[in-house]
């Protein structure tokens, strides 16, 4: 600990303690100035730049043409497949993650299952991107272990319409980080359900299902919905996994945008901005919906 006899003279040297001068209001804000400047320069302004660009013509005037141009079939198809993959992987991820979380917290399983699942989920939720694509190619690609094994027992996945380079292939791959992310976030919420609530409900005559319907589901709902939105945004913005998995055979929005940034394949810089704006719009809309829903229905939350 600090030696008082040493720090005493140093304090005496400065006639006013440093804190006293910082009390006045304008200097207060200096403490957060670096963060605010950073956030403006490298998060908010670049985003605004694109949003504004989406509504500008090549000569800088206001226009809605870029947004209207999004309606061309390749771009619409890209948005559609992106939304499908994101919704499917976040919906499945959310429900499967919830089921696993309930199983390990409330299923009466031995303690090691809980810690094992949580540790693994922590890792898998961050295991995305290019290596994840490699893992699924090695598993479910044409020469993947599972594909080969299933073929050797007479079931050919690829003859039954499966392809890892497809909507379902991508969804299945995304689930590898979506499910664990749900588990990691929802387990604390399930831990927050007090045992006494269930007992109180039972003494009041409620069946297990009534208790779930009237208490458990409403209590978990905000965390569940919030995590679902997070999973959606997570999948919607992801590019590395899809790019490494499918190359450009599955044109999701981020891959279209990636190609546009690299080589202006759309031959219209402002249309690129419009695509970026569309992505922000969709993830933003999901969040606005979430906030609206939460404030409307969860008045009991502090």
């Amino acid at each position: 600990m600090t030696d008082i006899s040493l720090s005493g003279p140093s304090a005496a040297g400065k006639t006013i303690p440093p804190g006293a001068r910082a009390m006045r209001l304008p200097t207060q804000w200096l403490g957060v100035a670096p963060f605010i400047i950073f956030a403006l320069m490298f998060l908010i302004l670049p985003t605004l730049y694109l949003i504004i660009g989406a509504f500008q013509s090549a000569d800088g005037g206001f226009t809605l043409q870029n947004i209207a141009d999004l309606a061309q079939p390749t771009i619409v198809a890209a948005y559609w497949i992106s939304i499908k993959v994101s919704v499917a992987s976040s919906l499945l991820g959310a429900f499967i993650g919830l089921a696993i979380a309930i199983a390990i917290v409330r299923g009466g399983l031995p303690n090691w299952t809980r810690s094992a699942a949580l540790t693994f989920s922590g890792v898998a939720s961050q295991f995305a991107g290019v290596p994840l694509a490699f893992a699924f190619l090695a598993t479910l690609g044409r020469l993947g272990l599972l594909t080969v094994l299933l073929r050797s027992i007479g079931f050919d996945l690829y003859q039954h319409g499966f392809n890892v380079l497809s909507f379902w292939g991508l969804t299945l791959t995304y689930l590898y980080f979506q499910i664990p992310l749900m588990v990691v976030i929802i387990v604390p919420a399930i831990d927050g359900l007090k045992k006494e609530w269930g007992e109180a409900a039972a003494t009041l005559g409620a069946t297990q299902w009534q208790y779930w319907r009237m208490v458990v589901i409403p209590v978990l709902w905000p965390s569940f919905l919030g995590t679902f939105i997070l999973l959606f945004a997570n999948a919607f913005g992801a590019i590395a996994t899809a790019y490494a998995l499918t190359g450009s055979s599955l044109n999701i929005v981020p891959i279209v945008l990636y190609a546009q940034i690299r080589g202006d394949v759309l031959h219209n810089a402002n249309l690129g901005y419009a695509i970026a704006f569309g992505m922000i719009f969709i993830t933003g809309l999901a969040n606005v919906f979430y906030i609206w829903f939460r404030t409307r229905s969860e008045r009991w939350l502090k």
Partner: peptide, 28 residues
């Protein structure tokens, strides 16, 4: 427990947080 028709009060209140006071009392 839910067939016994007993009322129970717990140390930690155990009110349902998502229900109003009236809804809590009306639960049973």
């Amino acid at each position: 427990p839910n067939q016994r028709n007993v009322g129970m009060v717990f140390q930690a209140y155990a009110l349902f947080p998502n229900l109003t006071v009236a809804q809590n009392i009306a639960f049973g």
